[in-house]
Amino acid sequence: MAADSRRSSRAVIAGLAFSLALAVVAGVMFGAVRVPFGDVLGALGRALTGTATGVGDAVIVDLRLPRVLLAALVGASLATAGVLYQALFRNALADPYILGVSSGAGLGATIMLVAGGSSLLGRVVGVPLGAFAGALLTITVVVRLASRTGRLEATSLLLAGVAVSYTLSAVTSFLMVVARESMQAVVFWMMGGLTGASWPYVWLLTGLLLVGLAVPMAFSRHLDLMLLGDERAGQLGLNVERFKIFALGCASLVVAGAVSVSGLIGFVGLMTPHMVRLVLGPDHRALLPASAIAGALVLVLSDLIARIVLAPVEIPVGIVTALAGGPFFVWLLVRKERVR
């Protein structure tokens, strides 16, 4: 039985990975200009062998490919964070966007953008650092607010998240108005801008995701235990407080990476782990990698839709995810009511 379920998990993960590969290729092919499949492969081949030539190759290798890869990395990051938050708070409605962590990371990033200007070093190191600090601070404040009564209620957690999220977004907007000269850069980024994609971001996010996904995967058994509740997890030998800080740190890391690259993109972190859990069950050894891949798939497809719906005009990818995610959230709420 255990072996069977492990085999079926592997099959699901392999299927997701294959779909992601197809989606990445499609993401590179379609856009303002359609690139035939053969040209995509050709350009990639030439880029790998260092013989890239002409504008056509440049469009593929320097514009389309990093953008699609970035979408995949951001989606994977958000979904990973969603899995971590949902386990730590035993709350299927938790995700970085709803908990206000994205807004916190956004404010941190904005402060760094406004203060540090738009040098490459500032964008690739300063902004993510600011986002990380913002994410950590926010989740600390939200958890404190929600557990004032000594118990962490699911509803108060979401309410605290939403309240903090609004406040921080307001501060971000205020900063944008005050610092007019950097306003354009901030707005551009805030809208869910995968448009600024370039290779340094791809490497940055790859690094953050490797840490933020691989480390929790090593502790997947501990995440399983957290689903039994803090007290029970402690009774079964888990150092709950220490593990929470550690896992929240990992989640903040990947959220910071995603937000500093693409602004606020909602619902990917909520929807994806939930869907994957319905198929694979709650075992984190399968859930974490499968959700990361599924998150990547969701965002690559969303970005593709964002680019072609009103082509040649692009709509921010956050709009696409919110359009799908909003109704999904309502469905989750209704379903929860019915279960009760």
């Binding site: 039985m1 255990a2 379920s5 689903l227 509740g229 069950g281 709650p282």
Partner: peptide, 9 residues
């Protein structure tokens, strides 16, 4: 508590 769908084993 059994909020999540782990197998009994």
């Amino acid at each position: 508590t059994a909020a999540f769908a782990f197998s009994a084993r």
